[in-house]
Every structure is written in C-alpha cells, then in structure tokens.
C-alpha cells in the first residue's frame, strides 16, 4: 500500500530532477564523481542514503525492485530499504535477480549476469579512492583532473611490500573507460570483473559525501595492478555448503563455539535458485 502522505518514492520532484541531472552527467563522464545536493533521508548515514536517493530518482511505478545487502535479500538493511520503497512508491519487489529491473545493492554484485533491462545502484560510503593517501579534496580533484594516478599505484605497492601480495580484497580500485580511477564501493574484488563490459547501467550514490558516479553499459573497467603482480579475483577456496556452487562468492559462517564453520553463497537468491533446481 502506498502511503499517500509522501510523494512517489519519498523525494519531491525537484530533488529527483536535481539527482537525475547529476546521474546523466555521471553517465556522460564515466567514473567521474559528480557533486549533488544530497538530502537528509529517514535513515542514518552509512545505511545507504546515497543509494536510496539514486534509487528514488530512477524508480518508475512499473519497476520491480530488488534490494540486497552483502548479497542477501533478508538482512536488516535490505529489508528496511525494500519496505521503504514499498511504502513510499508502491512498486513491486522481488528477490529474483533475473526478474528485477532495478537492484539496489550494498557491497555485492549479484552472481546472475545482469542484462540491458536492469539498473544496478550501489551504496557508497567513501567515493574517493585516494582518500586515505591524500586527505586534501582539492588535491585529489586535481589528480583526477590531470589523470595523475601514480599515488593509486603507491597504495598497491604498499600492499605488496607489507603482505607479499595485493592484499586489498574489497573496494579494489578500477580504471573506467581508460580515464578515471574509481572506487567500486566496498564490493569484494571477486566482483570487479563483473563490472567490465556489463550490459546494465551501474550507478553509485554516496549520500554523506554528496557524490554520484556511474559506469554506462558496455564500458571497459580494469582493475589496477602491477605487471609482476597481476590482479586476481579471489574467493574462499571451498564450495557452497548448501547448493554446492564452486563459482560464487562465499560467506564464512561460524556455526558453534568449537571452531565449527561453513561456507555458503553470499548471494542468497543465487543459492536458493540452485538448491531449488537441485543442482
């Protein structure tokens, strides 16, 4: 049931127009962080205020919405955001990746390949990939403007020097369309290759940091690396304990206090569909 006290999808039309303009600019300049006038949302920062605003601005009454949190449809963040749009927009929702037209995600890309009919909206905590190396925003903007990305490589160098390999396992920096270096939000680096040449539109919203950026369909997205330490999409070397999948990203679940543990698919829809089909 739509709550009539709210405009469609919570935000007023002027705000949505402002966000859409930012999104269009972001798609026109792949990987570039477009500033936008982020609004207060009825949820705390860090819970996906940026993603929710992007979703609200792109949502149509005919859309079928899926919300995932770390791959799962049934965790607090996913459930509350899904309910939020059910109530304020009255759109249909689904847990099936293939059936959704708009997917808001926190920290995962679904295992099921996306299509041209879909939009993937990421929740981004810190949009600036160089934030912890260069605290000055003026300087990071200049670095982006001049494509002066030696500093990014220093970050990877430090990883190898300290750990013997590139130990960054999430929020692994990528180069988009041979130009901007971008933080892919804290998705595991296992998901990085899925961003490359993806048929779906990928939108990134950072509410607290007031930035929107995007990867248009079929865009080259390359993970940064060294010639002698190439990028590797890593995952736990197990099969899923429920569906037996060997090609999906796994969560480690502690089952008791005696060291018992199991590895299960982080993408609950993918896992359930496989189990249903009896694979």
């Amino acid at each position: 049931m739509t709550d009539q006290a709210y405009n469609f999808a919570y935000l007023d039309e002027d705000t949505k127009r402002m966000i859409r303009r930012a999104i269009l600019k972001a798609i026109a300049v792949p990987g570039y962080q477009v500033p936008f006038a982020s609004r207060e949302m009825p949820m705390p920062y860090g819970w996906g205020t940026g993603g929710v605003q992007v979703t609200a601005a792109t949502l149509l009454p005919t859309d079928r919405l899926k919300v995932i949190d770390q791959g799962a449809d049934d965790t607090t963040n996913a459930v509350s955001i899904r309910k939020f749009f059910q109530r304020t927009a009255g759109v249909a929702t689904t847990e099936r990746t293939a059936e959704a037209t708009l997917i808001q995600t926190r920290h995962r890309i679904p295992e099921t390949p996306l299509t041209e009919e879909q939009i993937l909206v990421y929740q981004v905590p810190i949009p600036e990939p160089m934030r912890f190396l260069e605290p000055r925003e003026t300087e990071t903007r200049r670095i982006h403007a001049l494509a002066d990305y030696g500093l990014m490589q220093v970050r990877l160098y430090e990883d190898i020097a300290r750990h013997g390999e590139i130990a960054t396992s999430y929020a692994y920096p990528v180069e988009v369309a041979c130009r901007y270096v971008m933080d892919p939000s804290p998705i595991p680096k296992f998901d990085n290759p899925k961003m490359n040449d993806c048929p779906a539109i990928q939108l990134f919203g950072a509410g607290r940091e007031q930035r929107i950026y995007a990867v248009p369909p079929y865009t080259r997205v390359v993970s940064l690396d060294f010639d002698d330490h190439p990028f590797r999409a890593s995952k736990a070397s197990h099969d899923c304990a429920i569906c037996g999948a060997s090609d999906s990203y796994l969560d480690e679940v502690i089952t008791d206090d005696a060291g018992g543990r199991m590895f299960v698919c982080s993408d609950t829809d993918y896992c359930a569909a496989r189990a249903e089909r009896g694979e």
Binding site: Y149, L151, Y157, E158, I160, D227, D228
Partner: peptide, 17 residues
C-alpha cells in the same frame, strides 16, 4: 620504498620488482 618508488610509478612504471 613506496616514497622512493612514487615518482617511478607516477611516470608509468608498473613492475613491482
């Protein structure tokens, strides 16, 4: 090492060793 290597990486060196 990262401090000394930064200039090299900034000018396109991509071989860690």
């Amino acid at each position: 090492g990262g401090n000394v290597g930064e200039r090299l990486m900034a000018t396109g060196a991509r071989h860690y060793g």
